[in-house]
Write a protein that binds this DNA or RNA. Structure first.
Lengths: 337, 337
DNA sequence: ATCATATATGTAACCGGTTACATAAAGGAG
DNA sequence: CTCCTTTATGTAACCGGTTACATATATGAT
């Protein structure tokens, strides 16, 4: 069943059927009704694939995230969905699992699927292959918007948060609470947020005359397990830190997992500040101080920006950076009783 | 740039290029190399849309969920992604926000996009329009797998949990802990899990000789706000319940939100058991007793089943129901000290 | 040497839409 | 009444792949 069949049924040409469906061009009302009746009777649904091929646009937007199971990204996606609903665009979802190789595969697929646009949280800001591909996308007319993570030397548009300033303020809260021995469980040094949050940490210590201590700056990967192990390692140091700065929500959870197992309580035995809220902990008033932002809104903004670029047929990025506001919410875990 | 251009470059026909790309049919090794070289040189990526149109299959699977921001569904999707990675299939994501109307729109789009298969958590088990559409999909050769929520009179394959038995055991735990005044904040009566969990609740009370009390059985919608309000209402009853059964994770959060605001502690001032775990609460050893299951696995199973049906070109459902195991994990909130 | 089979490649129709272009009738201005 | 513009519709090429079918050569068995 295709438009030619419908055309035959309605006694018109396929062009007219197409015009009726798309409400384009001139069609006499009487003809329109005949066509609509034929469509209705046949239960005809036009083939979007054929349409895509013809107009050279898939009307689909690729969303590439590193981990959907992370509530930050599921909120981001939720916001994107909201911004896209009502538009013509569908969302094609890819989960890279923080693996560069998978990211490359996803980009490959995105390219072959002729996606109309791309929203991506790249695994690494240094990945030349990903960067080149994204630049290539834009030069082919496929706009790209970075989500939460920038790419080095790319000038790509994106929606971010001011990671350094936010981390700075978070660490400063620990210092104000009297801490001098402050550790950080870093994010991947290859990711922009990981790096910038670390930068903010260092700047805060420097500005308050606290020497950086190598043992207190341990690497992480934005995942629970690693953070758990690093917390253990930190607390087993001969001179352990009295406070920990966690670089993202998963890191916070890893820290909390270890502390909980050891029956250590935040705000009593040890202090901490985490980056990104954890909704259910807020609900039970668990006193974890975090740097917060509206993830849903961030996703919404990213999608809105992309759709805006699409509607203006503007594929080239111009280094537009939207920053969503953040807030340092102190709930007590930055202190020690 | 299309295969005909590549064909020209390599001095062969488009059919040969197609054969090389798909590794189908006979191609002399020497020719193959020439073609591959031409593809490489041109940076050619075949157009999946054209391919889809030609082979009449989009190689995309539609995933329709009611709320991605709910960690249960984001875990489900994560599992689906894992099961699909390595296959040829992409995921097209739809979020209905628990709204039937949006679900219908999504199905409409899914149909026009000629998706290869569908994984859906329908908003309501009674929605005739959705049901008919799904049946129609299957008769058109598009297999469907239901995820976590069944549809009435449909015989559709699906991956579920034994909601009644699980709820029964959860409520039984409250009874064993000595409770007689047990309330339930129900799920939507139009959703299978909502109904079956309520069924389990009633059966447990009945089997233990406890009369059902109308005021204790309040409606909910699987969302935080409503659960919050209902908790307030329940506790303001002249004769308030001593225990609450929450029908899903969002409901639990709504209950906890109110209790926390009132400085009431579970396992001390009031008891409760919730359906579905809340990961971060587990990490901090928050003593909320819940009925648990592996959501990621459930998503994985659903996707695996769908891909299996697709590979066997078996679009008709045969009422196959996979049940993922559940576990009642008692952490103390079912008691009162 | 003959014929069957396996290997290799090209031609062209087809998937189901869109749309440039052609054609024609109707409406309105002068 | 003529000419121009607006309205209405059809024809056919095109988007970029796939594949049935035709054709041709190589291989090998008898």
């Amino acid at each position: 069943m295709n438009i030619r069949d419908i055309a035959k049924k309605a006694g018109v040409s396929s062009a007219t059927v197409s015009r009726v469906i798309n409400e384009s061009g001139y069609v006499k009302e009487e003809t329109r009704q005949k066509v609509l009746a034929a469509i209705e009777e046949a239960g005809f649904v036009p083939n979007a694939i054929a349409r895509s091929l013809s107009i050279r646009d898939s009307s689909s937007i690729g969303v590439i995230v590193p981990d959907i199971a992370n509530e930050f990204f599921s909120s981001i996606i939720s916001g994107m969905g909201e911004a896209a609903s009502g538009s013509q665009y569908s969302i094609v979802l890819f989960d890279t699992g923080e693996m560069q190789e998978r990211e490359h595969q996803c980009l490959q697929i995105a390219e072959s699927q002729r996606l109309s646009g791309l929203l991506i949280t790249p695994v690494s800001e240094l990945d030349m292959e990903t960067r080149d591909k994204l630049i290539q996308f834009e030069s082919k007319g496929i706009p790209v918007v970075l989500v939460d993570r920038n790419m080095k030397n790319s000038n790509m548009d994106g929606v971010f948060v001011e990671n350094d300033a936010a981390a700075y303020q978070g660490v400063e809260a620990l210092i104000r609470a009297g801490h001098r021995k402050i550790a950080i469980i870093k994010g991947p040094s290859t990711s922009m947020p990981g790096k910038d949050r670390f930068k903010g940490y260092k700047a805060a210590l420097r500005d308050h005359g606290i020497a950086l201590k190598k043992e207190y700056m341990v690497s992480g990967d934005f995942k629970i397990i690693k953070a758990y192990e690093q917390t253990k390692a930190l607390l087993e140091l001969p001179d352990p830190p009295t406070a920990i700065f966690a670089s993202n929500n998963q890191t916070s959870l890893g820290v909390l997992k270890y502390l909980t197992e050891q029956k250590l309580k935040i705000g009593r035995d040890i202090s901490m500040v985490g980056f990104d809220q954890i909704e259910s902990l807020k609900i039970i008033d668990y006193r974890l101080s975090t740097i917060e932002r509206d993830a849903k809104r961030q996703g919404y903004e990213a999608m809105a920006l992309l759709i805006n670029k699409l509607s203006r047929k503007e594929s080239k990025s111009s280094g537009r950076k939207i920053f969503v506001p953040f807030q340092v919410v102190l709930r007590g875990s930055e202190t020690i009783k």
